[in-house]
């Protein structure tokens, strides 16, 4: 997914003169020619987030489309006030592509983990939060959003879905499967796992890659009164407000397969963490069985 993004940026900078790209000192090798050929519009700014967001906002006000690439916790949590004031309040657009969330740097400790990203961003009105599950989905969502004049955050994952590659639309959920029992909400890279767990079950599976804006209409339409199991690769409960709001007036039982709201003090591998925190088929089936 990272490589797909960098290829897209390479093409964008070469072909579109009103675009500007900043990397916060990552992913330079893949676009080294670009950085050399277009130093004015493609820059490695160094370890630099807060001020960079403000500068990007100025560029947006000056008519440019800024895109920033960095590591998710520093792009989201360190810069929260810049997101709120420089972009959301001023009504200016930016594309922010973050790697590392939630636990893609599994050996680096809590500083590099970012299970908070979607929850934090969704608190700021007007911010788009997009979490593609594959490289193709990333490209599709990027192409739909990058010129829309809004602050748009993309979470790119090093562990994409391999079985499912969906034709996604910004702001829309996909109905992957219709059934009579529970409704499973599969977010981003959780889709493969959800479908493996639900292959022989009579359930509805909805696939969400746009976390903001959240597609309430599809959930409202497809929900048939059963249990809702949310499978989310960030802190559990991040989408609860949207789900409850979409189904206002109805009584809903929600179960979560996601990261618990605690500080992760472990290392190991990505797979170790997914197992330890129960983001696996076994837990999904258990949640659907009860």
């Amino acid at each position: 997914m990272r490589r797909a993004f960098l290829n897209r940026v390479d093409k964008m900078i070469r072909e579109e003169e009103d675009t500007v790209y900043f990397t916060v000192d990552i992913g330079m090798w893949a676009i080294r020619d670009l950085l050399e050929k277009y130093p004015e519009r493609a820059t490695n700014v160094g370890i630099y987030e807060d001020g960079m967001f403000g500068i990007a906002a100025g560029l947006a006000a000056g008519g440019y489309i800024p895109t920033i690439f960095g590591i998710q916790p520093y792009l989201v949590e360190r810069t929260l006030e810049q997101i709120k004031l420089d972009f959301a309040y001023q009504g200016l657009g930016v594309n922010v592509i973050g790697t590392g969330a939630a636990v893609d740097y599994p050996k680096y400790g809590y500083s590099h983990y970012c299970a908070e990203d979607a929850g934090v961003l969704k608190m700021i009105p007007g911010v788009e939060v997009l979490t593609p599950g594959t490289a193709n989905e990333f490209i599709s969502l990027f192409n739909q959003a990058y010129r829309d004049g809004k602050p748009t955050f993309f979470r790119v994952s090093d562990h994409p879905n391999k079985e499912y590659d969906i034709d996604v639309t910004l702001g829309k959920a996909n109905v992957i499967k219709r059934g009579g029992g529970a409704t499973v909400i599969a977010v981003s890279v959780m889709l493969d796992m959800v479908m493996e767990a639900c292959s022989d079950l009579d359930v509805t599976v909805l696939y969400y890659t746009s976390l903001a804006p959240f597609d309430a209409d599809t959930l409202k339409r497809e929900y048939n009164g059963g249990k809702i199991v949310v499978c989310e690769p960030h802190y559990s409960g991040t989408l609860d407000y949207d789900i409850i709001d979409a189904l206002a007036g109805r009584s809903v039982q929600i179960e979560h397969i996601g990261f618990p709201r605690e500080i992760f003090r472990n290392y190991g591998t990505y797979e170790d963490k997914m197992e330890y925190y129960g983001l696996n088929t076994e837990h999904i089936r258990a949640a659907l069985a009860t």
């Binding site: 004015e40 001020g51 100025g58 006000a61 000056g62 008519g63 006030e81 004031l85 420089d86």
Partner: peptide, 23 residues
Amino acid sequence: NSAGSLGHGFPFAAGLAYAAKLK
């Protein structure tokens, strides 16, 4: 610019100046 919180206007201005340089 929308002002209020300090430390925001200067980077924003630098972005505007950079946009003008590019143009």
